[in-house]
Amino acid sequence: HPDFFGKYPKERPFYRTIKWDKSYYTFTGFKDPEQELQQAQRAEPTLSTLFIVHTVLERERSELGISAVWCRWQRSWGVSHRYCQLQSLSRLSHQNPEALINLQGHTVVFADQSGMNASGHVMLGTMDVHHQWTKLFEQLPGYRSLQQQTHWLKERISLLLGGTQVVHMDRLGPVQPIAEHYSSLNTFHKRLMSHHLRLHPRSLQGLTMLLENDRSSPSLHEMGHFIIPIKCDLPALQVFLQNHAPEARRRIQRKNQLQAEEEAVVKLCLETLSLRSLSKEPSVSPAQMIQCCERLLEQRSPHMQGLQICVSHFYSVMQDGDLCVPWDWKS
Rank of each mutant, 00 (worst) to 15 (best):
residue 148 Q to T: 11
residue 86 L to G: 08
residue 111 A to V: 04
residue 34 E to H: 03
residue 228 I to G: 14
residue 215 R to N: 05
residue 67 S to D: 10
residue 251 R to K: 11
residue 39 Q to M: 10
residue 267 K to L: 13
residue 159 L to P: 01
residue 112 D to C: 05
residue 304 M to K: 12
residue 17 T to I: 03
residue 60 E to G: 02
residue 48 S to N: 03
residue 133 W to G: 10
residue 127 M to P: 00
residue 265 V to L: 06
residue 25 Y to D: 00
residue 43 A to Q: 10
residue 213 N to V: 09
residue 43 A to G: 08
residue 266 V to L: 13
residue 321 G to W: 03
residue 323 L to P: 01
residue 253 Q to K: 12
residue 328 D to R: 06
residue 91 R to S: 13
residue 113 Q to P: 03
residue 226 F to P: 03
residue 283 S to F: 08
residue 115 G to T: 00
residue 328 D to T: 04
residue 243 N to P: 05
residue 16 R to D: 08
residue 142 G to L: 12
residue 114 S to M: 05
residue 116 M to C: 09
residue 48 S to V: 01
residue 324 C to H: 11
residue 275 L to S: 05
residue 7 K to C: 14
residue 10 K to S: 15
residue 129 V to Q: 13
residue 39 Q to T: 07
residue 235 P to Y: 06
residue 86 L to T: 01
residue 11 E to Y: 06
residue 220 L to F: 05
residue 168 H to W: 15
residue 328 D to L: 06
residue 305 Q to P: 01
residue 12 R to S: 09
residue 171 R to M: 13
residue 251 R to M: 06
residue 270 L to F: 04
residue 298 E to K: 12
residue 10 K to N: 15
residue 183 S to A: 14
residue 296 L to H: 11
residue 46 T to I: 00
residue 184 S to P: 08
residue 251 R to H: 04
residue 32 D to T: 00
residue 180 E to P: 03
residue 55 T to P: 01
residue 110 F to W: 14
residue 268 L to P: 01
residue 119 S to P: 02
residue 211 L to F: 06
residue 321 G to M: 06
residue 86 L to W: 01
residue 221 H to Y: 10
residue 177 P to G: 08
residue 184 S to T: 08
residue 1 H to Q: 01
residue 37 L to D: 09
residue 92 L to H: 14
residue 164 T to I: 15
residue 139 Q to N: 08
residue 97 P to T: 09
residue 257 Q to G: 11
residue 264 A to H: 08
residue 209 M to Q: 14
residue 10 K to G: 14
residue 60 E to Q: 03
residue 1 H to L: 02
residue 298 E to C: 11
residue 279 S to E: 15
residue 232 C to Y: 00
residue 103 L to R: 12
residue 244 H to V: 03
residue 179 A to D: 14
residue 201 P to C: 02
residue 25 Y to T: 00
residue 192 L to V: 05
residue 272 T to A: 06
residue 315 Y to A: 15
residue 91 R to Q: 09
residue 202 R to V: 07
residue 23 S to F: 00
residue 50 L to G: 07
residue 249 R to L: 07
residue 326 P to N: 13
residue 34 E to N: 02
residue 53 V to N: 13
